[in-house]
Nucleic acid binder design. Structure first.
Length: 416
RNA sequence: GGAGGGGUGGCCGAGCGGUCAAUGGCAGCAGACUGUAAAUCUGCCGACUUAUGUCUACGAAGGUUCGAAUCCUUCCCCCUCCA
């Protein structure tokens, strides 16, 4: 492996973060000479960060670990425009209040991975609404406008692909890349930021910022992107039973998060260990040698480490323990989703399908019925054959009824 | 402003007076096979205490008809082209 001068670039490349860089050698040199300030922008498209954001967060994590200063830029301003990159449709416009709520909620996600504060390497949080909201149209156009040509903008993937597919691209969205470029320059001014990180889909926007910096501030800026993470079967990362994989525990429990990683495809395990855990590379190399059935051990490590990073040691251990009890012993783990009910709720008994719905294993009663009919439902590990089976409190073992939908989804009804 | 083309279930996309809860594909769920993997095969995939039943649904509101996603009217929204 080609050695790099800086620990930063060495780490990022060896762990598989590099996709493209505007000037890798230059950046390497600069990083070896002193502290670099770098940022990643996050638009407030939801009230929690999700797993798609995780790669870039990990990049910031390593940035900080190798002695540099990360900035998390919240897109309070740019969210009002909507990034057209990688989308065929205009994003739904959201109001200020929603954006601010989302930003506040997202912030919690970062603190697990980055240390914020006032020290030289402490992370900074910024919000581009601070400067974008104040912009005056004419002065802005006159300072920034001359540096962007429509010719160039039309060749950007985000624009070109829309046009080729004959999907509409509004003027509003068309401006997004300009604002992102401006963000970069503004962060340079305010914090001496010289590097922007992002996913490969951000390459175009990032390059615009780098060029803008050179033109109006005569500053050399760098762009660095990581690969868009897909599973080896080509699917986008982050889809799960419940939809997106969220980082906030109230939207996606530590147990679910653990299970998400536990179910990683074989071909992805090593890549994910490098990207999403902080395990040393030689340790990962050891896990890489596992084959066949043994790969499951590597998956457990992956699940434990990722969950530990996000939710902490205790939550990770609990999740692992629950998974072990549930899958390896067919028992009941403490972290399984639990619904509390009273014996009064049961009355003379509740039909099996209704119980499945109440436990959250089926969204509707019809779905619960179908699940039972399809032979996928279990009550206390016994296959349910009769969807109308009247379940009474006597079915409980130690005050608990275990319900399962398929092999992987389990829930507990606790009766008091 | 003018001309043309559209709006169908989570998405794509057929249907163009009854046989339409609506073909097909994707996504999703379950079963089989496995290793809590992938691939493959099979079933399910609007809701309702499951009923040869009811209700909701093909942009919105009216109308024609025994009967409309399909025809007519008005309205809303989107796209393409011309200027």
């Amino acid at each position: 492996m080609a050695a790099y001068k800086s620990e930063l670039i060495q780490t990022l490349t060896s762990r598989g973060f590099l996709h493209q860089c505007t000037d890798l050698e230059g950046l390497d040199t600069k990083a070896s000479q002193g502290t670099i300030t770098a940022y990643v922008g996050y638009d407030a498209t939801a009230d929690s960060l999700h797993i798609g954001n995780l790669v870039s967060i990990m990049m910031l994590h390593w940035l900080q670990q190798t002695g540099h200063r990360p900035i998390t830029l919240m897109g309070g301003g740019t969210t009002k425009i909507g990034d057209p990159s990688g989308r065929d449709e205009t994003r739904v416009l959201v109001d200020d209040a929603t954006i601010n709520t989302r930003i506040a909620s997202q912030k919690r996600g970062f603190s697990r991975f980055l240390k914020y504060g006032d020290g030289p390497c402490d992370a900074i949080i910024a919000n581009n609404a601070e400067w974008l909201d104040q912009l005056q149209y004419i002065p802005f156009l006159r300072t920034i406008g001359p540096h962007f040509t429509i010719n160039r903008m039309l060749t950007m993937d985000s624009v070109r692909l829309r046009l080729e597919r004959e999907q509409p691209l509004s003027f509003l969205e068309f401006n997004y890349m300009i604002l992102q470029g401006y963000d970069f320059v503004e962060l340079t001014k305010r914090f001496g930021c010289t590097l922007q990180l992002g996913g490969s889909d951000q390459w175009g926007n990032i390059v615009q910022g780098v060029e803008l910096g050179r033109r109006i501030a005569q500053t050399e800026l760098f762009g660095f992107t990581c690969p868009l993470i897909t599973t080896s079967s080509g699917a986008k990362m982050g889809k799960s039973v419940q939809g997106a994989v969220w980082l906030n525990a109230d939207r996606f429990t530590p147990y679910d998060y653990y299970q998400f990683w536990r179910n990683t495809e074989d071909g992805d395990v090593v890549r994910f260990l490098k990207l999403f855990t902080t395990l040393p590379l030689d340790e990962i190399a050891r896990l890489e040698k596992l084959t066949g059935n043994e790969i499951n051990d590597a998956k457990k490590v992956l699940a434990l480490e990722t969950t530990r990073l996000l939710h902490g040691e205790a939550a990770a251990q609990d999740a692992a323990e629950t998974a072990r009890k549930t899958f390896e012993q067919g028992g009941i783990g403490d972290d399984l989703p639990t619904v509390e009910m009273t014996s009064a709720d049961f009355g003379a008994g509740i039909p099996a399908w209704s119980l499945l719905q109440k436990a959250g294993l089926a969204e509707t009663n019809s779905e619960a019925r179908r699940l039972i009919r399809g032979g996928g439902a279990k009550l206390n590990d016994q296959k349910l054959d009769d969807e109308n089976l009247n379940v009474q409190t006597s079915a409980a073992v130690n005050g608990m009824i275990k319900l399962s939908a398929g092999k992987k989804r389990h829930a507990i009804i606790k009766i008091s």
